[in-house]
Amino acid sequence: MGFKLLSKLLVYLTASIMAIASPLAFSVDSSGEYPTVSEIPVGEVRLYQIADGVWSHIATQSFDGAVYPSNGLIVRDGDELLLIDTAWGAKNTAALLAEIEKQIGLPVTRAVSTHFHDDRVGGVDVLRAAGVATYASPSTRRLAEVEGNEIPTHSLEGLSSSGDAVRFGPVELFYPGAAHSTDNLIVYVPSASVLYGGCAIYELSRTSAGNVADADLAEWPTSIERIQQHYPEAQFVIPGHGLPGGLDLLKHTTNVVKAHTNRSVVE
């Protein structure tokens, strides 16, 4: 069995187990497998329904001669939608809004960016022009300005110390501490036991640490421990890039980060 097929099978099995364990909360999309990078042309966006009122959005972007996937989250909030992270750029984010209108038909009224990198804030200006209120932590807003990236308009308070959590509509926002970046936030959907790890969490097929220019490698494993301790009931975990899975993604990420750190020390 090929690795790609095995990865998709694991996603399907995880979703099936969740649907059985929580039949009222989960209505997993039966329309197909989780979209992969090879299936999404740059400039297009796919939506994948995880649970009743919960979707991931998947886009792709060219970077350094390669094409990478990027995940975000959409959560229903009454007759409105909360968006977590842009679709990595203005063109993708405009396509995301169009796809949401086509498939869901509810307005996106608020959006949260989970850290300051372009795959999370690139497209904020498109959201703002569409009347979406954009939010991020003060740290993310400051770092985005320093980096020359787009800056969300509103500040999220109460997320300055490791372990801080605040309720934001249908989700809980959690600051686990520094990891992929010093400002990275985690998003949890309690009604569906869905954990969105953003770039602080890796997919299972990833074996290298990737972009760690703004990471705190020493603190990252401790931050992941905080996530595990705060959300032990999480059933569906979405990484910032690639295929979702279960809580095993947290341990896998820790292993990859520690291996990278150990290699760096040896070198």
Rank of each mutant, 00 (worst) to 15 (best):
L5Q: 07
P69H: 06
R206S: 12
S181D: 02
E157Y: 15
K4Y: 10
E147Y: 15
D164Q: 14
V166Q: 07
S7M: 02
A111V: 08
A129G: 07
N71H: 08
N71P: 01
L156G: 03
N92F: 01
P23K: 14
V237Q: 03
L127Q: 04
A25I: 05
G246W: 08
I50D: 08
L185T: 14
N211W: 13
I238E: 11
G242Y: 10
S22C: 11
Y188D: 14
T93K: 00
A133R: 13
A51L: 06
G78V: 08
A215D: 12
V67T: 12
D183P: 03
V257A: 08
T182I: 13
I151M: 05
P221L: 12
P176I: 06
V189C: 12
L217C: 15
V171Y: 02
I227L: 06
E44L: 09
V42L: 03
V187F: 01
V256K: 11
S113E: 02
K251R: 05
A87C: 15
K4R: 05
R206P: 13
S27T: 05
K258Y: 00
E145S: 15
S181E: 04
G148C: 10
L5I: 15
L5S: 06
G122F: 14
V257S: 06
F236E: 09
H154Q: 00
A200P: 05
N184Q: 12
R167S: 10
L159P: 09
V108L: 03
I17P: 12
V45K: 14
R142T: 04
E99W: 12
G198L: 03
L243Q: 15
S264V: 10
L195D: 02
S208V: 12
T254D: 09
Y202R: 11
Q229Y: 03
L97V: 02
A129K: 00
M1A: 07
L195I: 15
L24A: 11
V42M: 02
T153I: 01
A259R: 06
T60L: 04
V187I: 14
E147A: 11
P35N: 14
S264K: 03
P138H: 15
K4D: 05
A178K: 07
K102F: 15
G32H: 04
D183R: 00
V257D: 13
T261K: 01
K251P: 14
A21N: 04
N149T: 00
P152D: 10
K251S: 02
V42R: 11
L6F: 04
Y12F: 04
L143K: 01
L97P: 00
T222D: 10
K102Q: 12
V187P: 02
I104M: 09
I58V: 09
N149V: 10
L204W: 14
A59V: 06
V257R: 12
N149I: 01
G123P: 01
L81P: 00
S191L: 11
F3I: 03
P190G: 10
L10D: 12
T254L: 06
S137N: 14
T207P: 03
F26W: 06
V54T: 06
P152K: 14
H180I: 00
D29F: 06
S7N: 01
G148L: 04
D119K: 01
I104P: 02
V37P: 05
P221S: 11
L83I: 14
S160K: 11
G105W: 05
R263G: 08
R46N: 13
N92S: 13
G245L: 14
T109Y: 14
R263Y: 15
A25M: 03
P232A: 06
S223G: 11
G245R: 12
L159M: 04
G53E: 09
V237C: 05
H260V: 06
V37L: 06
S38R: 09
P41Y: 09
I186F: 02
A21C: 08
T134Q: 15
G2N: 14
I40W: 06
L250C: 09
G32A: 08
V266E: 06
K4Q: 01
S137F: 05
A95P: 05
S137E: 14
Y175G: 03
S31N: 02
L243P: 02
A259I: 14
L143T: 09
S155C: 15
R110C: 03
T182N: 05
P152E: 15
V194P: 04
L47K: 14
L173C: 09
G2T: 06
N92P: 13
D183M: 00
V37S: 06
K91F: 05
P232E: 14
I40T: 05
Q61K: 02
R76S: 08
S264P: 12
V37H: 14
M18G: 08
G210D: 05
R128H: 14
L5C: 01
E145A: 14
S113F: 13
Q229D: 15
V265N: 11
A259P: 09
G158F: 04
G32F: 00
L96W: 00
S208P: 08
L6P: 03
A213R: 12
Y135C: 15
R167G: 08
A59L: 05
D29K: 06
T93H: 00
L106E: 08
L24I: 10
V11H: 14
S137H: 15
V112E: 00
I20F: 06
A213D: 12
L250I: 01
A133T: 08
L143C: 11
R110A: 12
L96Y: 00
N71A: 06
E233W: 07
D164R: 12
Q103D: 09
T93M: 15
F174R: 09
T261W: 06
L217T: 04
I20M: 01
Y68D: 05
N255T: 10
D77I: 05
N71E: 09
R110P: 00
F168W: 10
G89Y: 06
C199P: 01
S56I: 01
F174H: 15
D183E: 08
S137C: 13
R120M: 02
E145L: 02
L81K: 00
P244A: 14
S161I: 07
G210L: 05
S161G: 10
L73G: 06
S160N: 14
S27Y: 05
G65Y: 15
S56E: 08
T114K: 00
T261N: 13
F26N: 04
